[in-house]
């Protein structure tokens, strides 16, 4: 088990852990934006950067790395609040604030770091997308790949292919749910759901009309992990009622 030192605290972590895993194990907080425990690390937002020294280097030589995906190797020393780290986080937040000046999350994170206003030119007609790619990453993780990052540089954005209703989207809303700035709009009801310009029919309980997933979701997930598609067809309320009836019939005493 590799052992490393984070802000002076010694911590041992399982092989294959990242610096971020080690920091959490040591009780050290490192801010993140594009990190999600359920997804592979991406290293895109640069907020989690830390100063790292590894055995073999000069004592005063450090490298600024993204802790979310940097492997925790035996003997490394990590500093999460060095002057350089604090300054770099400030620049990252300053730039994010220029990109998304109206996003409450970014405003809060910047303010917590002492930045009230961006020192860069704010984006014209800004939206709240910070390009963390959590939406595309979760869509890829589910093997749906309905949306992706499009273009590069200043024109980079998140969109379905050709900016049209994505043929592969199943309306699971995972992209909207993981978005840290809630900037993916959608509408949902027991009857229909719409997101990315695509309309979905909901899978409704035949007795109560309740719906939780779309028909497309049910089709996509049917059979996965050995779970039969039939399980999706009734709502949880109906299922509990059915189980309750079953238990009564199994009672030993009256």
């Amino acid at each position: 088990m590799p052992t490393l030192i984070i802000d002076g605290k010694k911590v041992a972590v399982p092989e294959g852990s990242t610096i971020l895993d080690a920091a959490r194990a040591a009780g050290v907080e490192i801010p993140t934006l594009c990190h999600h425990d359920g997804l592979e690390p991406w290293g895109g937002c640069r907020l989690c950067v830390v100063d790292l020294w590894q055995p073999g280097w000069d004592e005063d030589w450090f490298k600024l790395v993204t802790s979310c995906n940097h492997p925790a190797k035996d003997g490394v020393r990590v500093f999460t609040k060095s002057a350089r780290v604090v300054e770099t986080r400030g620049v990252v937040l300053d730039l994010l604030l220029a990109r998304c000046p109206d996003a409450p999350l970014i405003q809060q994170l910047a303010a917590d770091h002492g930045i009230e206003e961006t020192s860069y030119a704010p984006r014209e007609e800004p939206d709240d997308c910070i390009l963390c790619a959590l939406c595309t990453r979760v869509c890829d993780h589910l093997d749906i790949t309905a949306i992706s990052t499009v273009n590069r540089g200043a024109g980079k954005e998140i969109a379905p292919p050709f900016h049209e209703a994505p043929p592969d989207c199943i309306g699971c809303l995972a992209c909207a749910e993981v978005c840290p700035t809630n900037c993916i709009p959608y509408e949902t009801s027991n009857v229909r759901r719409s997101i990315w310009g695509k309309e979905f029919e909901m899978l409704r309980d035949p007795a109560t009309g309740q719906a939780v997933i779309t028909k497309a979701q049910a089709e996509f997930f049917a059979g996965r992990g050995g779970v039969p598609g039939e399980y999706f067809e009734t709502s949880d309320t109906t299922k509990r009622r059915e189980m309750a009836k079953k238990f009564v019939s199994l009672q030993i005493l009256e």
Partner: peptide
């Protein structure tokens, strides 16, 4: 990720 597939999948 709030996809609610488990809500739909639980047979009970």
């Amino acid at each position: 990720i709030s996809c609610r597939m488990c809500v739909a999948a639980c047979p009970f």
